[in-house]
Design a protein around this nucleic acid. Structure first.
Lengths: 150, 150
DNA sequence: TACATTTACATCGTGTGCGATTTAATCGTA
DNA sequence: TACGATTAAATCGCACACGATGTAAATGTA
């Protein structure tokens, strides 16, 4: 008997991560559509709402993304007048990203989003205690993966 | 004091899922590159290695993907001579996907991949017991998300 | 001060994901 | 048996991701 079961989807942890991530994005989509945002755009704004005036590099460190992904994304947010990209005069290589007033104001609209998402889970059997463990393991996993893919 | 901490990345479970999923794909990339496969292509092959001769729909049910994503991906795998797409004669709407001999043979090369991935985690502090819980919660989460995004 | 190296961002090409729509075939039902 | 509804893929357009490369500015060092 050949033990090919190692190759079954159920026995790997890669696939469920991939599936859960995509489904989560899909869960946010209708809520974010009201703000005319995609999920990655929402992430960038969360980073800036927490700390305004960051470089492309700094935003990338928070989200684990690089300029090849961020530059076009930031340009789209700039076109929506939510932020402004300015090349630093001190170091011409650096681009600083700052929220516009419109971008700052959008935070008020976004404040209710976490609540809306949480509400979707209220009638489910996902135990908060398990979720706490889940959250911790997820971050441990990320740390390991960051090291292994560096 | 405004409680904007609900919007912090650390307090959401959406972001770590997104990050872990991307990092995992990156972990597989160099290993899959030896087989000239992308990660989603590898997933499709895993589905077919487990059960050959499936419709586009059936593959999509396994991976939670639809024809708009699968059709181009399957065409690329067909170009690589790993599988063949055939429109069913019984029901002309249905396309059946079958591995070629080359596709079947590739399974032997892939059998060592899970082992290689596992080996990368051997020196880490991720407890197998925690990972078991993690895996379970992940699948529960997927079930809930599937329902909520249906 | 020259100049190789490093750094920050941008650009390019390829491959997903996915909402929306299209096309063609089949099904259900009057 | 007509014919509207449903179904399976495909197509289209847009927005990521990301490896590889390019460009310009800053840095380190002889």
């Amino acid at each position: 008997m050949e033990d090919a079961s190692v190759l079954h989807l159920k026995n790997q942890f890669c696939f469920p991560l991939y599936a859960a991530s995509r489904l989560t994005t899909k869960l946010y989509a209708p809520i974010l559509k009201a703000l005319e945002l995609t999920y990655p755009q929402y992430l960038v704004l969360m980073v800036l709402w927490e700390n305004d005036q960051q470089t492309v590099n700094a935003i990338g460190n928070c989200l684990l993304l690089e300029s090849n992904t961020l530059t076009p994304l930031l340009k789209r947010l700039e076109q929506k007048k939510l932020l402004q990209r300015t090349r630093s005069s001190k170091d011409e290589r650096v681009v600083t990203v700052a929220l516009t007033q419109k971008g700052i104001d959008l935070k008020k609209e976004a404040l209710c989003i976490p609540q809306q998402i949480t509400a979707l889970f209220e009638d489910t059997t996902l135990e908060p205690k398990n979720l706490e463990n889940f959250h911790q393991t997820l971050y441990k996993l990320i740390d390991v993966l960051k090291e292994k893919t560096a």
